[in-house]
Simulated scan of single mutants.
Amino acid sequence: MSDGLNDARAIRVAEIMSDFRNLQYYLSQLRATPTAEEYYLEGYSLLRQCTSEAQAILQSPFAASSSGPGGDTEREKQQLRAIIADAAVRRFQCQRAYLRAHAGLRWMNTRNSILRGHKPNASHLSALQAADSTLRMELLAITDAHVENTLRAQDTSQGKWLAEDPTLAQIQQMLMARR
């Protein structure tokens, strides 16, 4: 028997997909132009990695069955639940990449403000090392729990229906199964 929540599920799919699309757009707009000497520095490598992760998320196929509901509300319910789970995992992955990319951009801006257009030299060493250390600390703080908390807090503050969103443990299980 259908529980009458399929409209709420469909709205939730649209909300999650909208968030996903916004995150993908942001990640696709990342532009960094390091010099040849800077190309492999930690922050620039991180930005390239985040962009690649976003592309891989877009290219991964949807695993649930694609047959139409055919008017069966119970089948529609199961399909919507599967779509919510898949979309939530993709949004989670994009949010993690977004948070990491944002840390990389802060590192890049800090580096640029330290160097002010000059080549790095001994006088910049301690400040550049501090920027590198700050980046590493920020990345350590971007745990799965932190990513999930940022998404849940945003959804809750907007009054979204979260009753069937997967838990962090379920998201982690789905990610492990995809590897």
Rank of each mutant, 00 (worst) to 15 (best):
R81E: 13
A169I: 02
L125W: 04
Q49R: 15
R75L: 15
W107P: 01
A8C: 06
N109F: 15
R9N: 05
T35Y: 03
G104L: 06
Q154M: 02
R48V: 02
E42F: 09
P69Y: 09
L23Q: 07
L5P: 00
M174G: 14
E76I: 01
S28R: 10
A101L: 11
L27W: 08
Q55K: 12
Q172F: 01
Y25D: 13
S2M: 01
A82Q: 14
Q129N: 14
L125Y: 11
Q154R: 13
S45G: 14
I142T: 08
Q24C: 04
H146S: 08
Q129F: 03
L41K: 04
L80I: 07
D144P: 11
Q173G: 01
L58G: 15
K119Q: 10
A131W: 02
Q172G: 00
A177R: 04
V89T: 11
I171H: 00
S18K: 12
D144R: 00
Q79Y: 06
S2Q: 09
A145I: 03
L41P: 01
E164T: 11
L47K: 03
P61Q: 12
A141W: 06
L139Q: 08
G43T: 03
R48I: 00
R116M: 13
R12F: 01
G159L: 09
D165I: 02
H118Y: 07
G68W: 08
R179V: 03
E76T: 02
A56E: 14
H118F: 05
E138Q: 14
A14K: 15
E53V: 10
S28T: 07
Q78Y: 02
E37W: 07
N6S: 12
Y26S: 10
W161H: 08
T150D: 04
A169V: 07
E15I: 10
H124R: 09
A8V: 07
D165H: 10
P34H: 07
L135I: 10
T73R: 13
S67G: 01
S45L: 14
P69Q: 04
T35P: 08
T167V: 08
Q93V: 00
P34M: 02
M176N: 06
P120L: 04
L125P: 00
Y98G: 00
C94Y: 11
S67P: 00
L47T: 07
G117E: 08
T110A: 15
D132T: 01
Q129V: 03
P120D: 10
S28M: 03
T73I: 04
E148M: 12
I16Y: 09
C94R: 03
A63T: 10
D144Q: 01
A36V: 13
Q170H: 05
M137K: 14
E74I: 04
I11Q: 15
Y98S: 05
L168G: 06
N6K: 08
S45K: 13
L139P: 00
D165W: 09
A10I: 01
N149C: 03
